[in-house]
Design a binder for these strands. Sequence first.
RNA 1: GCCGGUUUAGCUCAGCUGGUAGAGCGUCUGAUUUGUAAUCAGGGGGUCGGGGGUUCGAGUCCCUCAACCGGCACCA
Length: 651
Amino acid sequence: MVRVHLPDGATREIAPASTAADLAASISPSLAKRMVAAAIDGQVRDLSTPLPDGATVELIGRDDPRALELIRHDLAHVLAEAVQSLWPGTKTAIGPAIEHGFYYDFERDTPFTPEDLPVIEQRMREIIAARTPFTCEEWSRDDARAHFHAAGETYKLALLDAIPEGEPVKIYRQGEWLDLCRGPHMRTTGDAGTAFRLTRVAGAYWRGDSNNPMLSRIYGVAFADKATLDAHMTMMAEAEKRDHRRLGREMNLFHFEEVAPGSVFWHPKGWRLFQTLIGYMRDRQEQAGYVEVNSPDIMDRTLWETSGHWQNYRANMFLAETVDDREYALKPMNCPGHMLIYGQGTKSYRDLPLKLAEFGKVHRYEPSGALHGLLRVRSFTQDDAHIYCTPDQLTEECLKVNDLVLSIYRDFGFEDVRIKLSTRPENRIGSDESWDRSEAALREALDRAGHPYTIFEGEGAFYGPKLEYVLRDAIGRDWQCGTLQVDFNLPERFGTTYVAPSGEKLAPVMLHRALFGSLERFTGILIEHHAGHLPLWLAPVQAVVATVTGAADDWAAEVARTLKAAGLRVETDLRNEKIGYKVREHALAKIPVQIALGGREAEERTVTIRRRGATDTTTLSLEDAVQLLMSEAMAPAAAPNEQVSHEGMTE
RNA sequence: GCCGGUUUAGCUCAGCUGGUAGAGCGUCUGAUUUGUAAUCAGGGGGUCGGGGGUUCGAGUCCCUCAACCGGCACCA
């Protein structure tokens, strides 16, 4: 007999070679009916898996969260069978479960179109209704190779060859159809259920490499039950409503033109928001000891050769040639310009850390397919800064930047920030030793801050490793906002030095950092985060003063004048329209505060306030209203513990 | 950049198998002076994304370029 442990601590004896399904049946037939997989020593496996002696076994029902991945993976197989039965000769590549659903990659002469999806979905539902059992078979490599060769499944052959020697070659079969697959799967195609939808067709490179052929990918979403699926579809529809591209047009914030793909035309209201963000950041940086500078947009090729951009980044640069045959480039980064500013005059160790900030607009020729509203553009404004410090100060400065960026995100309501640490890439400049030091400094700062992070090997910038601060958009896409990069290379390339206490000239270490990252992107994320309902301190128009009748026009003018004098962003609406009409319009425009003025208010010198989202109103004196709104409209205060540090003395 | 899709009025969209364009909202004009999510009436507005082709005739079919959308790749 074999002994297995159940999650409740009980131990059961079963016959040798018994499977998880046998175990379930031995407990109760009704339980056996409901179970779709088993966690054996924590690993999710098929019910048909024989149980080893001493294993801990937990049976998994279809509504267990761990079954969701199985549902999605099963559906990927069902999708592939459906496609191959509809279009014999279609080749299959890979088909995993992913967040919210699944996909399968195919190669086919005529690509899929959106019209194919309902047809495929219908066939999938037939396969599911048939409740065909999934069975797992172990094949020899030769048999598998022969089979997939005969079937013309070239991608499966490649996948087969990628399985390490010594590992079993597993085949999952559902009726006539079979697939090379690691598993696990549930009992039958019927377990996959019907709470799924095919959502889109897309191109995808084989093995994710753009040198490889492009396959046709079909995506689906899937959940354990229809209610969850419906909830997901509703959420996607809601997310679409808060898409910043749509809100930007509706709220008259910005637009794009064909003549400048990837570059923003900011409208008055959008630009006001943009400038509010810059003003906020300027204050925060000043408190943190930064000094603001400005460097040229167009600089000669030789500068970019010195910095290494010409050799490493030219494909992404806008180039400019003049009538006298000089080659210039629009700056894709501010750092080389800041190197030249640093280089003016001799710097002492007493000057360090020196923090040069610039709200510089950079231009990068991004691939056309990458452009995406404000979130991925070809010209954007960075809240950029370069911190020059001694090697001793490095970790401390990284830590300060980390604290500052997280504090700033908190002011905007972003509490859940993910941090990525990207290490040295293939294409890079500088010695391995300086890369070692840079990567170590970032790691140490993060460890000291105690913030979790994920390491991305080989994804650093060509001149140094980087931290990326990632925020998520309305429909779950991740966007890098802030960044912190350590750089030993640029100071060396530019021959930049400071005078050490010993009198020796040494190379400073340099940090590149941007906290919003791109003002454009951050604005887009903010719009989505708030669904356009920007908090009072950010709203381009904070209040609209609307009259009920023409008799209140004079009072409205006085109220507006008073609010503006108090620094509030106010518009007036004296139009000959009903108040209900005005209220509706300004509510749709997402104005935070509406102030309605009729004969009564004019008489009593009061204002009636209606808040965004509310249906009730409050009447109070103008003086009280000014006090109230002013206090609410203030930018979040900087944390008091972030003081100007010692180097403030040198100014 | 790659695969697929889309592009008709300011916005959202309709226009069957080719026979020289429509709706709602907005805009404008007039009337209405109005109390918290749409007052009524009338009038303008489009070289159907650009270019080329097929045809007696193209918004509609074909080619091409561009932008946009969804993915993939890229993202210093």
